[in-house]
């Protein structure tokens, strides 16, 4: 794979994309191999891998839920949707649960602004939940198969860093 990129250091990001596609994430042994192959300092490879949001340095969670916090979605109640998701998963944005079952991620615009707000659950896009009706939103989330709300650990308090509580 590295050879395909001419072994050139400027192919680092491309190579990391491909490694992640194969392995699901960027493990330290994989990063070490990439660094050796491209003859790059280890810290440079780690610096790049940890800079970009889409590179994962941990194994992916079993289930991944990404909520769009782009402006169009925000204006249409994505903040409330995000709060609902954080409650149910007991996670903060961009956090993975300790048991590796759930990951809650934020994205900025999935290109479905016309159907805002939107979320992606395990690769499937779900659009236009009733974000301004708390009860209907709750049943909508239940219908998606999300766990019921859990008591939040203190660290995950809801200072509403994202939007309308």
């Amino acid at each position: 794979m590295i050879r395909r990129h001419g072994g050139q250091s400027h192919g680092l990001i491309e190579v990391l994309h491909q490694v992640q596609e194969l392995d699901g994430f960027l493990s330290k042994p994989a990063l070490l191999q990439v660094a050796r192959g491209l003859r790059l300092p280890l810290s440079r490879v780690y610096g790049v891998a940890s800079f970009y949001h889409l590179f994962r340095l941990q194994p992916p969670a079993e289930h991944r839920c990404a909520v769009c916090l782009g402006t169009a979605c925000f204006v249409r109640g994505a903040g409330r949707l995000a709060v609902g998701l954080r409650r149910r998963l007991g996670l903060d944005l961009d956090q993975t649960s300790g048991d590796g079952r759930w990951a809650l991620e934020r994205v900025s615009c999935l290109g479905a602004c016309g159907q805002a707000p939107v979320l992606v659950l395990d690769g499937v896009l779900f659009t236009a939940p009733p974000a301004d009706q708390p009860q209907e939103l709750d049943s909508w989330l239940t219908a998606l198969g999300l766990p019921a709300a859990v008591a939040l650990p203190a660290a995950v308090g809801l200072p509403a860093a994202v939007g309308t509580p």
């Binding site: 990001i13 491309e14 990391l16 994309h17 800079f51 970009y52 949001h53 889409l54 590179f55 900025s108």
Partner: peptide
């Protein structure tokens, strides 16, 4: 083509 990796 060069593909980004999630950085505004």
């Amino acid at each position: 083509v060069r593909v980004g990796a999630g950085a505004y």
